[in-house]
Nucleic acid binder design. Structure first.
Length: 802
RNA sequence: GCCGGAGUGGCGGAACUGGCAGACGCCCGGGACUUAAAAUCCCGUGGGAGCAUAUCCCGUACCGGUUCGAGCCCGGUCUCCGGCACCA
């Protein structure tokens, strides 16, 4: 009989559906295992091989854990709000709801074709009114706790489309769609205070089982700097505060710099004699985009304030103050003390403006470059700090600053608060009302969900407001507080909102009085294993950790962290090693592969393609290799012997394979697990196989290729289903062979192999080695001075002329 | 510039804790089956010298070190990929 993958796969998918084989049960005595993959954005392009890799990987893990006796929750849903759908709706004049529905149908069909063991009864959709309700509810809680606030922010503004662009829509400082230049424009935006949680988001990483590169990237993104705030008295009679990580270099401060946006510029307007020049520099800097500002990084520009100077608190000397755009308004205090001898940027600025450079830490040549080393070096030209090591100088100066009341220790973070407003249609409406009298008033909880109104067109207005602003009947409302006339907020939430808590909803997807019931959360959370893309490390992953911690503080969730373990997959490139893209015409559609070779082959290949964490190029030829493998497995099914003896060697091979596959799946070394299965199948093909061993093979194969495993399982008359059978165990004593092949080396050079009983001692091994012709020849007129034996591996004879 | 990761056959990639480098698969070559082709099966396959399945040499980006022994450890160099980017 031929391996009819199409018929077999359909048959078992229908059966699993009908029998709800993969439904997770909340009332269960078994140990739970919550496996999570990033839910897809249902775009119009359909499923991509980029989805298949991580989904198959976690499906393999989930299936294996299920067979090991865990109560497994492996859910799926739709992250359905977002720009592409909105743009498609605009272009084709269809409602985004309709587009979303259609896309979901396509995705669902494609996912089912791949045979994933998702619990479809828990399917969720972020655009579902019941889901929106809880996303909005969480926002109201943020507002209630003072963590949601409104602030004027520079936004990306396309000069041609006249709309606000998300950062992702800005490519090389131009509009992604029309290519026109993008400038910065001030706009009032809703913000979430993620910075309030910076310290905890950083500290709690230590206890998590995330792959190292994820931790590192999050740490860098949060960017903690430990230093001090220092106050400089100015000749204007006030105090200019700076943040520095190097208070030890205070004696080397020869000037100060303020950001062009610094509030003191206006405050000192009357004193600054060159105010016009200063103002024009500031305006110029403001017009520059972030991109231009960093592009210009090579050349330092700035203007010296004339009329106001500062006093170095340790030397008492007057120093000039500059305005320069190399100082950022948004970090620290927006002003710095410049130490050109020991900071590269200050050094460049000092060189450009002819300012004095003083060496205060020995170790470099400050005439040639700033000496920035903090590990070594002794203080010099630094009064009472002279002769101290940098680390001691830091402590001493901090104490001194605190005693004098002019400085204090301070920790700063790079992390910025989260811009939470989008001037778009297809997102959750922000549930706030603006009243002339009461200001911003939150919508009462019983009015949730606040749904999007039906509109004629989804284009943003030409003044940058959300399309919702045009729907007067929706915008005009009454103030929940005073009952007077009021207007709804017309900004919507970013697509990161719904994905910040979706893993909680899976625990209890139909809960009507909370995001999920406390009992369900108690049982299922935290997520045991979450796999997703590296590109989500600093946005989605960090955002959801932030929401989770906030919900923990509210008492809504029982754990401090949402995900215990985080792994990440590499990208799949096109056939030639280039990125897959429509324009290159090298996009692989998983559905095509499934139709041509079957889902099991697709699954095998995507797992066999290479190291799971690394990028790997697609190869259709190699796909065929996996198909051949499954064909061989299928043929084995027809040659299985009822009973029969198998060789001792094969028995050991089976046990070794069980161990290898068991361990490799947990380590996400799917490629070597499959290689081991291939070797075993080669053994079976060559030596024959009996029913019991075939059963073990089918169990091991089931997570990777569930359909063929199930079909052969049934044909061979085994009970129940392979996917819920007991995962095989291995016998430690059968992992080692009775006799082993060992390498023989002479003076470290490989000379041949010998076969000896396992665990043989030096005497046995040496005498076996001496029987090798090559060895005895080498030993002529020589004597052995030392024998190095590595048990069951190798023997190295060190020899010397007689 | 800073942080992280990686350099192994014609290709994707294996290699435990420092112990026979190249598992497994692809490609390729030879053979069997076939009228023929496809499919399948068997054999070979890192490079070089050699009639040789004798024997020998070379070989894990490069230079050096430690070691009986290094793809793996240490010091330095180069290249590629990813992230951040004037964060004081």
């Amino acid at each position: 009989m031929k391996y009819e993958f199409e018929r077999i796969e359909k048959k078992w998918q229908d059966r699993w559906d009908a029998e709800q084989t993969y439904a997770a049960r909340t009332d269960d005595m078994r140990k739970k295992f919550y496996a999570l993959v990033e839910f897809p954005y249902p775009s119009g392009h359909g499923l991509h091989v980029g989805h298949a890799r991580p989904y198959t990987a976690m499906d393999v893990v989930a299936r294996k854990r299920r067979m090991e006796g865990y109560n497994v929750l492996f859910p799926i849903g739709w992250d359905a709000f977002g720009l592409p759908t909105e743009n498609y709706a605009i272009a084709n004049k269809v409602h985004p709801t309709k587009v979303t529905e259609e896309n979901i149908q396509v995705f669902k069909k494609q996912l089912k074709m791949l045979g994933y063991s998702f619990d479809w009864s828990r399917e969720i959709n972020t655009t579902d009114p019941e889901y929106i309700k809880w996303t909005q509810w969480i926002f109201l809680k943020f507002y209630e706790k003072g963590l949601a606030y409104k602030e004027k922010m520079p936004v990306n503004w396309c000069t041609s489309c006249k709309i606000v662009l998300a950062n992702e829509e800005v490519v090389d400082n131009a509009c992604e769609r029309c290519g026109s230049p993008v400038i910065r424009k001030e706009k009032s935006q809703w913000m979430l205070k993620i910075t309030e949680y910076a310290q905890r988001l950083l500290d709690d990483l230590d206890g998590l089982d995330y792959i190292e590169r994820v931790k590192v990237q999050q740490r860098n993104w949060i960017g903690r700097s430990i230093g001090a705030d220092v106050n400089f008295v100015t000749t204007a009679g006030d105090v200019l505060q700076v943040f520095t990580t190097r208070p030890d270099t205070l004696f080397g401060v020869t000037y100060m710099v303020m950001a062009p946006e610094h509030a003191y510029i206006k405050k000192w307007a009357d004193r600054i004699k060159n105010y016009d020049e200063v103002r024009s520099y500031c305006q110029q800097a403001g017009r520059k985009s972030d991109f231009e500002r960093t592009e210009m990084a090579k050349e330092k520009t700035g203007v010296k304030l004339s009329g106001v100077r500062a006093i170095n608190p340790v030397t008492g000397e007057e120093i000039p103050i500059f305005i320069s755009d190399y100082v950022l308004a948004t970090y620290g205090t927006g002003a710095i003390m410049a130490v050109p001898g020991h900071d590269t940027r200050d050094w460049e600025f000092a060189k450009a403006f002819g300012l004095p450079i003083i060496e205060v830490v020995k170790g470099g040549n400050v005439e040639e470059a700033a000496f920035t080393d903090v590990e070594t070096g002794m203080m010099t030209n630094s009064g009472f700090l002279n002769g101290l090591e940098v680390s001691d100088a830091k402590k001493t100066i901090l104490k001194w600053l605190e005693e004098k009341g002019i400085g204090a220790p301070k920790t700063n973070f790079k992390l910025r608060d989260w811009v939470f407003s989008r001037q778009r249609y297809w997102g959750e409406p922000i549930p706030m009302v603006h009243c002339e009298k009461c200001g911003y008033v939150p919508l009462p909880e019983d009015q949730l969900p606040l749904l999007l109104p039906d509109v004629e067109s989804y284009e943003p207005t030409d003044n940058g407001e959300s399309p919702l602003a045009k729907v007067r009947s929706w915008v005009e409302t009454t103030c929940p507080r005073c009952g007077g006339p009021a207007e709804r907020e017309t900004d919507t939430m970013p697509n990161w909102a719904g994905s910040s808590w979706y893993y909680l909803r899976y625990a209890d997807p139909h809960c009507s009085n909370a995001p999920a019931s406390p009992q369900a959360l108690q049982y299922w959370t935290p997520v045991d294993w979450y796999n997703g893309g590296m590109e989500h490390t600093t946005l989605h992953l960090l955002y959801s950790r932030f929401w989770h911690k906030f919900l923990y503080d509210l008492g809504v969730v029982p754990t401090k962290e949402p995900y215990l373990k985080r792994t990440s997959h590499g990208m799949i490139l096109g056939e030639g090693g280039e990125k897959m893209s429509k324009s290159r015409g090298n996009v692989v559609n998983p559905t095509d592969i499934v139709k041509r070779y079957g889902a099991d082959t697709m699954r095998m290949y995507i797992m066999f393609i290479g190291d799971f964490e690394k990028t790997a190029p697609w190869s259709t030829k190699a796909v065929k290799g996996c198909k051949r493998f499954l064909d061989r497995v299928w043929n084995l099914g027809e040659t299985v012997q009822e009973g029969g003896r198998y060789s001792e060697k094969t028995l050991r091979a089976i046990h070794k394979t069980v161990k290898k596959v068991t361990e490799d799946i947990e380590a996400m070394k799917f490629n070597t697990a499959i290689a081991a299965l291939m070797s075993l199948v080669n053994d079976f093909t060559a030596n024959g196989v009996n029913k019991a061993d075939m059963k073990t093979l089918l169990k091991l194969l089931s997570p990777f290729a569930p359909h063929i495993a199930e079909e052969l399982w049934e044909i061979l008359g085994f009970e129940g289903m392979a996917c819920v059978s007991r995962w095989p165990e291995y016998d430690e004593s059968l992992l080692v062979d009775d006799s082993v092949q060992m390498a023989v080396q002479i003076n470290g050079k490989f000379r041949g192999t010998i076969t000896v009983p396992a665990d043989s001692g030096e005497e046995v091994v040496t005498s076996a080695a001496l029987q090798l012709e090559k060895v005895s020849r080498q030993l002529r007129n020589m004597r052995i001075i030392k024998t190095i034996l590595v048990k069951n591996k190798l023997v190295n004879l060190l020899i010397q002329p007689l």
